[in-house]
Amino acid sequence: MAVATNRLRQFNRTMPSFIWPAIRAILVAGICFVIIYPTLSQLSTALKDVEDLYDPSVVWVPKNFTNVNFKKAAAGLNYWVALRNTLMITLVTSTLQLFSCAYIGYGFARFRFRGRGVLFALVLLTMIVPPELIMVPLFLNFRYFNFFGLLGETGVNLIGSLWPYALTSLTGTGIRNGLFIYIMRQFFRGMPGELEEAAYVDGAGSIYTYFKVMLPNALPVMLIIFIFSFVWMYNDVFFAQMFMPNADLMSRNMVRLPLVIRYEQGPEASLAHNAAIILYLLPLIILYAWLQRHFVESVERSGIVG
């Protein structure tokens, strides 16, 4: 060990100072390339005409720019209707999840009560249960919804409405909400307690303290959670097929696209598929481009890890 350390020290001294930055630059650039390569190639393909596909001199930049593929893809996805429906559902659910998970997480972080450990273990349990397990019972639950028998014998049919999304989000049982509760709990545990004590001394109640003192401080973490929740809801097919069996939604139309524009149609279908991928990712990319500065900074400051 000592010999190795000495060698390392010598190596450090003899190695010119520019070598590591150079290696690092190559590594970072390489990984970045691997990450954005698929999307770039899809974009380039989506802009191509069929002619360009068979032209060996065309690699990245097409000679005949065309928007035919995008038109076809937009029609195949029923883009604008699906986008409007999806955005509505996604924004409602992620906003609700954001507030409910922060609220629940705060309860776990700051109050000692009997059964807290068990209850928190149950939060983690919701994360590791495969969704397939509760899919059909959950569907039946919303199909014949009777809140502990309060809504009559047969219950109310909530399938096809926003209610299933709203109810699961409000109660912190939506997609990966366990993770959000966990993150919020870690964050609130890391906050100094003096702020709340000051508020309590002034006679504020715990709920008032939470909303006026703690929540405003949690904004950076909540931004991260909002982005996660938005992305996961946007991509979700599982809840969509259960709660909204008939509506046009982006994720589902995307999965079904090969049935609308079939592979057998050959290269034209493929071009349209690539255009569809770009159209599909566009709202996410816009959201990320808009929030990326805050997102990356939040990761640094939020103390997500407690």
């Binding site: 629940i104 700051r110 209850l119 715990s206």
Partner: peptide, 10 residues
């Protein structure tokens, strides 16, 4: 009691 108020939704 306050703790339960916060975790009640879950």
């Amino acid at each position: 009691l306050n703790g339960w108020i916060f975790v009640a939704p879950f």
